[in-house]
């Protein structure tokens, strides 16, 4: 798919039939489970282009205000008292700050588990300048295991932008969630052609070429390239494909090859 096609596809997704309540857009229903709510929040971040503040609220009365831009979470501006995580409120998020990212994930987790009724988001213009923040894709990979293992049908909540049947990539999402701490970059291509990526620009370029590579095996399959005689921290590449057409290309330290193979195998047995 060419870049203009990807852009058009992205615009088509964004122009999907959103359900709105006044100025608020419904992104999930609590009945879909904690995973659906958490992913809907992170997907809302992943849909951001211009700097914005997202006020996420559920009928339980809990709210979070998130500063976002370019598919990244810059900082948590505010949160309800019940969710309070003072250590991250107003703090610029550093991609290297693993502990503070875990606090953010815990905050979203608490919001998701405590949500009731519909969950909505109100978007307001944000500051043009601000920290770069952390990609939504990376945060999705950090979701707790028990949320990650929720039913696949909850990946795209009812009423959220984009048609559920056009998304897919459940196994690929699960693979990246498990592999997340072990990889240095990834590119996920879903069955509908949409892509998300995380990592340094030169790595993402390589992963894009890797995703385009013709598979040697019939899906599902995972191919890895390593330099066994090199350093254990040396860069290695992997490309996983699934029967639904989704592709995940990953870069990782060579020593993680065995663990990633196991992570891929898990997606075949669930």
């Amino acid at each position: 798919m060419s870049d203009p096609d990807r852009f058009d596809d992205r615009l088509a997704q964004l122009a999907g039939s959103d359900e709105t309540v006044g100025a608020a857009r419904v992104i999930a229903r609590a009945g879909g489970g904690g995973r659906a709510v958490a992913l809907a929040v992170l997907n809302a971040i992943d849909e951001s282009i211009l700097p914005a503040e997202l006020v996420v609220a559920s009928e339980a009365g809990e709210t979070m205000t998130l500063s976002v831009a370019a598919r990244r979470l810059r900082l948590v501006v505010a949160a309800s008292e019940d969710l309070a995580a003072d250590t991250v409120i107003g703090q610029e998020l550093d991609p290297e700050g693993t502990e503070e990212l875990e606090v953010v994930i815990a905050l979203i987790d608490r919001f998701a588990r405590g949500a009731a009724g519909t969950v909505v988001v109100v978007e307001q213009p944000g500051e043009e300048t601000g920290p770069r923040g952390v990609s939504a894709t990376r945060l999705i990979g950090m979701l707790p295991e028990e949320i990650v293992d929720s039913p696949a049908s909850e990946l795209v909540p009812e009423g959220a932008a984009g048609a559920p049947e056009a998304d897919g990539g459940v196994e690929a999402e699960r693979f990246l969630a498990v592999a997340g701490p072990r990889i240095s970059g990834h590119l996920l291509r879903r069955p509908d052609g949409s892509e998300t990526a995380d990592g340094a620009d030169d790595i993402v370029d390589i992963l894009s070429a890797l995703a385009d590579l013709e598979a040697e095996t019939t899906p599902p399959g995972f191919e890895m390239w390593l330099r066994q005689t090199g350093q254990p921290d040396g860069r290695a590449l992997g490309r996983a494909v699934w029967a639904d057409g989704s592709v995940a290309a990953v870069a990782f330290p060579a020593r993680e090859g065995g663990a990633l193979a196991a992570a891929f195998a898990q997606t075949l047995t669930v």
Binding site: G221, F222, L237, G257, A261
Partner: peptide, 8 residues
């Protein structure tokens, strides 16, 4: 690269 895996 000196080793490649194909896992099915």
């Amino acid at each position: 690269w000196d080793i490649a895996y194909s896992i099915g």
